[in-house]
Design a protein around this nucleic acid. Structure first.
Length: 290
DNA sequence: ATTATATCCTGATCGC
DNA sequence: TGCGATCAGGATATAA
């Protein structure tokens, strides 16, 4: 599911409900989830929610100047975070469930989506981590810098045309797989790699190092433009991406090539092709992209 | 040093 | 309707 725009969407939606909220308890329901000891985070306040590449970071502490913990959530292919406010009584008084009581879990089972792997219980609601394929991961660190991906953030000021040119110059790899490399640029995945290359009118099999100055320029501006636009549409849903409210992303209908094999190119009316690169599908228009 | 492949999982879809 | 093969938004360890 989640590439940079989807993760950014989740972070923005989580911020107003989770930031400054106290994490009463974290409950892991899948033994596969390691890398975090829930007891360590009990009753800590989430003072900030941020994004690092494709990871969502909860910054936690008990109080100002107390030691900090930083929890990185990586949704991988099918992870979602769903916010659920606790049910309210008719009088409007919030009912905070006693999470130690088994009966809450039994009741909750009917309202919970499938594949819940972890539950973050906050004071007025909980965040459900759902992940059918169970690829998602948690990691806990004392220092937030430990999560900073090696690759450049494509929406940061540091991502300049010149930097991109320098990164590309060294590689003989095909440009599409190159865009997926999180150690070069972080946050781009299979959907946006295809969409960015279409917008830049570059063939996915071009070698990274072979791009001329004007092509690098196109790739740079297409990367920024497509990612920003996707964020403004709350990401893309192909099959199962959901934001924190369970809604689908709005960028799907703006896709020009991804998942459009044999359909007409919106620009030249020719057929969109699908090829395999490193075991993954690449969609492109052979007329528009050279 | 790069660059392909197998692997971790479950579910949806397609051809027969 | 059922069944096996294939594919899926990611990333990493291992092999070439």
């Amino acid at each position: 599911m989640p590439e940079l725009p989807e993760v950014e969407t989740v972070v923005r939606q989580l911020r107003p409900v989770v930031q400054q909220n106290k994490l009463v308890r974290l409950r892991l329901l899948d033994k596969k989830l390691r890398g975090v000891n829930p007891a360590e985070l009990r009753h800590m306040r989430v003072y900030k929610v941020s994004r690092a590449g494709k990871q969502i970071i909860f910054h936690l502490r008990h109080a100002r100047k107390e030691p900090e913990r930083h929890l990185a959530i990586h949704l991988r292919m099918t992870g979602t975070l769903i916010w659920q406010r606790y049910a309210e009584r008719s009088g409007g008084r919030k009912v905070v469930p006693d999470v130690s009581r088994r009966n809450y879990w039994r009741k909750a089972a009917d309202i919970l989506p499938q594949h819940v792997r972890a539950i973050f219980y906050f004071e007025d609601g909980c965040v459900l981590f759902c992940d059918p394929r169970r690829f998602g991961t948690f990691a806990l660190k004392a220092d937030a810098a430990g999560f900073r991906p090696a690759g450049l953030e494509p929406l940061s000021r540091a991502f300049t045309r010149k930097k991109l040119a320098n990164l590309l110059r060294l590689s003989s790899q095909e440009i599409k797989p190159w865009l997926l490399r999180q150690d070069k640029l972080c946050g781009i995945g299979n959907i946006y790699a295809a969409e960015i290359l279409f917008a830049a009118r570059l063939h996915p099999r071009r070698r990274a190092g072979s791009l001329g100055a004007s092509e690098v320029q196109r790739l740079h501006s297409a990367t920024v433009r497509i990612l920003r636009k996707a964020i403004s549409f709350c990401g893309t849903t192909v099959s199962d991406f959901q934001d924190t409210t369970g809604s689908a992303g709005g960028f799907s209908r703006l896709l020009k090539v991804y998942d459009r094999e044999n359909r007409r190119c919106r620009r030249c009316r020719g057929a969109i092709l699908r090829i395999m690169q490193q075991g993954r599908s690449t969609y492109y228009c052979p007329v528009c992209q050279t």
